[in-house]
Computed example of a mutant assay.
Amino acid sequence: MRVAGIAVTLVVHEHKRLGRGIELAALAEQLKGSGIGLDFLTGELQGQHDPSGIVFTVLAALSGMEREYIRDRTLEGHESARKRGKTIGGATVVGDDTLTHAVHLRAQELSLRDIAARLVIAKVKKKGQHPSPATVQRMLRDHDRTTDPAAIPN
């Protein structure tokens, strides 16, 4: 298109859809080097921009800092909730029967993948599906911690 003399502009809903901080600044440099314009429909960068302009770079850096701030505050909230005994995460996908079955299958020395394939979620929106091996691992680890906390290293 550029060979034919047609101007090319990348139109994005909001700058956060492209990336944050350094990622966004690097992308902007690539666009500028290719002669591609940048237009944001919403957000603090709304409008057309020179992808390598100083205002764009500063706002990209600020959005990266904002992301880190949100992440830090979320982690602090999770830690505070754990200290108060609250569970972090979604709904429990396995019940006591499923846990008992998983412990029995582990005693037969099956792999986590094999155990997960033999279990079926009985509640919530994933009803009828198999849990992931990672879910089985967490479930068994939590079971081991509650039954014999001294046997499991922190």
Rank of each mutant, 00 (worst) to 15 (best):
R138H: 13
L24P: 08
H13Y: 11
E68H: 10
V136H: 04
G21T: 11
E14L: 02
Q129Y: 09
K127E: 13
H13D: 13
T87L: 11
K125L: 10
G5F: 05
H78Y: 14
R113G: 02
H15N: 04
L75D: 01
T100A: 15
G85M: 11
H104L: 10
R73S: 01
I54M: 12
D114G: 07
R71G: 00
F56A: 06
G33Y: 02
Q108F: 02
K126Q: 15
V94H: 09
P133F: 09
A28C: 09
I115C: 06
F40P: 04
T9R: 11
Q46K: 05
L38R: 05
S63Y: 02
L45Y: 03
M1R: 12
G77T: 01
K83D: 08
P153R: 04
R84F: 01
K83H: 09
L24E: 02
L59Y: 09
T42Q: 15
A26R: 14
E109K: 14
R67Y: 11
R106Q: 15
G77I: 00
V94C: 12
R17H: 09
A117E: 07
G77D: 01
V58I: 15
G35V: 07
A91I: 11
T100S: 14
L24Y: 03
E109G: 04
R145N: 14
G53K: 04
A7T: 12
V120I: 15
A122M: 07
V8L: 13
R17C: 05
L99H: 05
G77H: 01
V103A: 10
T100V: 07
E79K: 06
D97P: 00
V120F: 06
L59A: 03
G89C: 06
S111C: 01
R67I: 10
D72G: 01
H130W: 08
L119K: 03
K86D: 12
L110F: 10
Q30F: 01
K127R: 15
